[in-house]
Amino acid sequence: MSADALSAAEAGLVSCTTCHLLSRPAETANPGYCPRCGAGLVWRRRHSIQYTWALIIAATIFYIPANALPVLTTTALGSTESDTIIGGVIFLYTSGSWPLALIVLVASVMIPLGKLIALAYLLIQVQRRQVRNRHDSARMYRVVEFIGRWSMLDVFVDAFVVALVQLQPLMSVEPGPGVVFFMGVVVLTMLAAQTFDPRLLWDTPLERQALDG
């Protein structure tokens, strides 16, 4: 694969976003439908950059309460304790299980933040029409999209713990408001990764101008 390879759009062709079949557009203005799977064909997703930005900003806003508010409220023998994600990491670390602390830190704090930064980085590159290292950028995008489906780990753990640990009146666990925001971060980031059109990474500045709707 070479960076100098002709892109489909350059060749006057359009690829299907669903089944990736390369076909000739019905018209230039309106590429029509994929002859194989019947999905609508677009040269580039409409408003891809704008949509992705909006979702990333929304996710970033939610990222703050997700970390500031407690995700779990534990009531054990009459004493109530609320833990934020970072609080949980610190608790795990101080209680000696640093591998667990590391997992939670990576999965719940670093990955969501990393995804947001990665997507923002890609968007800025595309917007400035200077994609420096297209291969690395493309790989970055693939990783972001792949990780997305595993990001709800925290929410799942929360849900499990809340459902299982209900030993009233000795001990009970309730979800905190932070978990809702955390879920919002994950869902919005996944949607942002979906709306981003990776084909933009390969477009030359001239094409971008031409393809921009």
Binding site: Q50, A54, I57, A59, I61, G184, L188
Partner: peptide, 25 residues
């Protein structure tokens, strides 16, 4: 002049997110 900078409806999402976050704060 090419039609550019049209604001999409999608911006409602971050605005809503911001409102919720500010409200809680």
């Amino acid at each position: 002049r090419p039609k550019r900078g049209r604001i999409s409806v999608i911006w409602i999402i971050p605005i809503l997110a911001a409102l919720v976050a500010i409200g809680i704060a």
